[in-house]
Design a protein around this nucleic acid. Structure first.
Lengths: 158, 158
DNA sequence: TTAATTAATGAAAATGATTTTCAATAACAA
DNA sequence: TTGTTATTGAAAATCATTTTCATTAATTAA
């Protein structure tokens, strides 16, 4: 497999190196490990949860670094920062096992449970593309991403 | 005008009384003033910003009460709690001068500016209704609300 | 109307996520 | 290998929000 932009599951570290270098960032163990954790989960992890997983393998990595790295990754557009109203930010890979499948969220306002859904993404796409284009020009905004949250009560809470 | 459920701009306090009583809540000055502030603005105010405005009229009202009241109002479904990623929650009336016009948000990831847009709401409606129904039954979720955020760069930041 | 009941309040302290500081470390370029 | 400089970890600082608790005031019962 040629070096470059493969994005499959279980790949060794590496594909993001070019991305880092291009942005003038150094490639460090904490950064690689944090990406690895995000690449291996389907959950919406908080900074602390990521820290705990990285820390298990590299106990020398600190929570501060996790926060700093997540900020960098979000700025680079590799990671999406989510807020579901429970007081802590959560993160998911934009590209990776989850990101590959574009999805939105169903949030239970009672217990905080979050369900990802991928239904209707294709129907949405057309409308969203159209909306994006129009909003871009009307409000002179360069749209890079979007997020749809449905709020309500899950089966246990209603 | 008969007493009851008028929701126009500039109404005297009163229309939310029934709603409060129905939920077993007492009608107090802080609660009325906080609703008045939310009813009179088009902005996305934070708890502290609301506090400052209420405090100007009733200096005895404290920030704690603002937080508590906003939680009650959100639970009652009178107020929508928004998070744009700047570290503080923001609130808007669900019914009122803004809420009447359903809208979504355009968020600048650089400067944090938020633009409300009402474009395409009618086109969206059909898709969202359909999506809501399907998600409700498929995931056994009672959907009460939704939120769409577009992220990108505003004219000044791009 | 007035007194009793109890939710609501304000101030201060506590909490908890995130950020900052700063000296030590480690990537990378030369 | 060595120098330069971004990155790091630990501890302290910050800042939004929540909790505590004694006081006040909205509603209810009398």
């Amino acid at each position: 497999m040629p070096r470059g932009h493969g994005r499959g599951f279980g790949m060794g570290p590496g594909w993001w190196h070019g991305r880092f270098r291009g942005c003038g960032y150094r490639i460090t163990i904490p950064r690689q490990e944090i990406l690895k954790v995000l690449n291996q989960t389907e959950e919406h992890l908080s900074a602390e949860e990521i820290y705990l997983r990285v820390h298990k393998v590299y106990p020398s990595v600190g929570l501060t670094t996790v926060y700093r790295t997540l900020e960098v990754l979000a700025d680079m557009g590799l990671v999406f920062r989510l807020e579901f109203g429970d007081g802590k930010a959560r993160y998911e890979l934009v590209e990776g096992p989850k990101g590959k499948l574009h999805h939105h969220h169903l949030v239970c306002t009672d217990c905080g449970r979050v369900i990802d859904y991928t239904d209707f993404i294709s129907e949405e796409k057309e409308l969203l593309d159209k909306t994006e284009k129009a909003l871009s020009s009307r409000h002179n905004f360069k749209i890079l991403n979007h997020q749809i949250h449905f709020y309500g009560l899950c089966n246990k809470c209603k």
